[in-house]
């Protein structure tokens, strides 16, 4: 119930935070909204020696127009901020429909998108959504800035490409093709509310056939992944029921699907297929 003792720092600039983080050398952790980190610390499943609270770094708070339908979501933007952002939800309508499915009001008021990505819970929803949107991540350390694709960022359950001295400063979402439809569908684990399986789909048509497809799945593998085989099967198809069904059959191709006492691998595999179909159908229906 009570975290182990730690030192606390609340830098007001990113540079200051990076210095502190480098000095903390693995013993320090970044604190954003705290919605994942503090529960772990309360159960003493994590006991960092120092917390670097980035909550007051004004430059991280922004949701920026990157032009042409692209959006920059700063590290401190909460789910609530994004839902309230006309810019973000217009550019990427999936955010408006998917975010209300994440956690609850209180969690969305505090939790950041960047925190969810940095935390990399394999059951979290946002990774699939960002993969389908082909997001990139801006990462800073004392050594400078690098920009990486969300794809490849997740290395395993709770493991990412983020170094101990790095801060994720912005999530960039590129424009999606004109007229694309997008949707997120998930089946939740009732106790925790996290997804047993969740599927994000961004689909565009060219004439009568599907010309653009980005499908990403969370909960089935040990990290969220792009379902390339599904995308390949969809591309060029007519997007009819049979085509979707056939494509969805590839939802877990190449994945080692996990089991726990809530749901076994066979069920998750089946749900990955069902929810792929449902997400694709919904995305198609959302094409304007």
């Amino acid at each position: 119930m009570i975290p182990a003792a730690f030192d606390y720092a609340r830098p007001t600039s990113l540079d200051e935070a990076l210095v502190l983080l480098a000095r903390g050398a693995g013993n320090a952790k970044v604190l954003a909204g705290g919605q994942s980190l503090l529960p772990l610390m309360r159960l003493r499943l994590a006991s960092p020696g120092q917390l670097i609270d980035i909550g007051r770094i004004a430059e991280l708070r922004t949701i920026r127009d990157l032009g042409g339908g692209a959006t920059g979501i700063g590290a401190l933007a909460t789910y609530r901020d994004v839902l309230d952002s006309e810019l973000a939800t217009r550019n990427h309508p999936i955010l408006a429909t998917a975010i209300p499915m994440i956690g609850d009001v209180q969690v969305r008021n505090r939790g950041t998108l960047a925190g969810s990505i940095a935390h990399a819970d394999p059951a979290s929803d946002l990774p699939a959504i960002l993969l389908a949107l082909e997001g990139t991540l801006v990462i800073r350390s004392g050594n400078g800035e690098r920009v990486v694709a969300v794809e490849g960022f997740f290395q395993g359950a709770f493991a990412t490409d983020l170094g101990q001295d790095e801060i994720l400063t912005e999530i960039r979402l590129p424009a999606t093709p004109d007229g694309a439809g997008m949707a997120y569908r998930a089946i939740e684990q009732p106790a925790s509310g996290y997804s047993m399986v969740g599927v994000a789909a961004v689909i565009g048509r060219v004439g009568d056939s599907i010309g653009y497809a980005r499908i990403a799945i969370t909960g089935a593998g040990n990290v969220a992944y792009r379902a390339m085989a599904v995308e390949a099967a969809l591309l060029g198809s007519d997007g009819g029921a049979a085509a979707i069904e056939a494509a969805a059959a590839h939802a877990t191709d190449g994945q080692v699907v996990g089991s726990d006492f809530n749901a076994d691998a066979e069920y998750r595999t089946a749900m990955a297929q069902v929810y792929t179909r449902r997400a694709v159908e919904a995305a198609l229906a959302a094409i304007d």
Binding site: L31, G34, Q35, L38, L51, D53, V107, R110
Partner: peptide, 22 residues
């Protein structure tokens, strides 16, 4: 585990779980 909401207060006008805030 931050799930029951019994601790909910308003922080700067928004509901938060005060057990999950330092």
């Amino acid at each position: 585990t931050s799930q029951c909401g019994a601790c909910t207060v308003q922080l700067n006008g928004a509901a938060v779980k005060s057990c999950t805030v330092l």
